[in-house]
Amino acid sequence: MNSKIIWTCQAIAACIIGGAGLLKFMGNPTDQLLFAELGMEPFGRYLIASLEVIAAALLASGIFAAPGALLAIGTMLGAIIAHATVLGAEVQGDGGLHLVLLVTLLLVSGPVLFVRRRELPLVGSTL
């Protein structure tokens, strides 16, 4: 796949997940509410925020984009589970924007992980 497309996907993914992580760190009221609903406030919020910021940094780094994409997909799967089991599709009357961002993140991280799968540490050579 064209490397420009992959870099664009990486940039979009890094922006979405990095922004989400920073918002959580800064104590965004919506996030506080969501994590309270999940019973993870505040420790879980900081934990997830850390993972998201790390994923964004890895995605932006280029050489570590594959593990970054995997981490992003992992955190997004967790978020989707949260929406599916506890939060529901709409959060604080956002019309489903939060969920759309999650799915977008999955859609841009997936191709990055697929194209760069051989760069994954330990398992890359078998993929």
Binding site: M40, G74, T126
Partner: peptide, 25 residues
């Protein structure tokens, strides 16, 4: 994760990804 603590979903996601990898292998 659904009944005790949401933290267990870290395990759900990890084992789900490992299961997919195993399925591929």
């Amino acid at each position: 994760g659904s009944n005790v603590s949401f933290y267990f979903h870290f395990g759900t996601v990890t084992t789900l990804l490992l299961s997919l990898l195993n399925l591929y292998y």
